[in-house]
Design a protein around this nucleic acid. Structure first.
Length: 109
DNA sequence: GCTGTGACTTCGA
DNA sequence: CTCGAAGCCACAG
């Protein structure tokens, strides 16, 4: 045993990330950096790539994942960023000027 | 196996 | 506040 997290496959990371998405409570958001750390991913860019493979936003709320500075990420795969913002506000997350107050809405920091 | 690219991050001007 | 550059890891061609 001894250690060895080793580099998991893209599919493995994707499984972990999607699992984390389902664990995010309603009204909370998580940053790419946060998810990456929880999933054991070193590079947050990988998280973005994984989310881009998401085909079911109903099951995996990728809209709850935002940038480290609280702003909405680019290239939302399910439409314009406006849709993502509206969805967040619907869940109770206040979005001001395309930004979210992580001090108030970040998921288990 | 090298090159290009990316739903990112952080610092500096 | 906006813009640019370097760092970072993994995948596609």
């Amino acid at each position: 045993m001894s250690s060895v997290p080793q580099s998991l496959s893209f599919n493995e990371y994707r499984n972990v990330v999607f699992e984390l998405l389902t664990q995010i409570p309603r009204g909370k958001v998580a940053t790419y950096k946060q998810i990456a750390q929880l999933a054991g991913i070193k590079n947050p860019r990988l998280v973005g790539r994984i989310l881009h493979t998401n085909t079911d936003d109903q099951k995996y709320p990728c809209h709850r994942v935002i940038r480290a500075d609280g702003s909405i990420a680019d290239g939302y795969a399910f439409g314009e960023r406006f849709g993502q913002i509206v969805r967040l506000r619907t869940e109770g997350v206040e979005v001001l000027n395309h930004k979210v107050n992580l001090e108030l809405y970040q998921w288990q920091k």
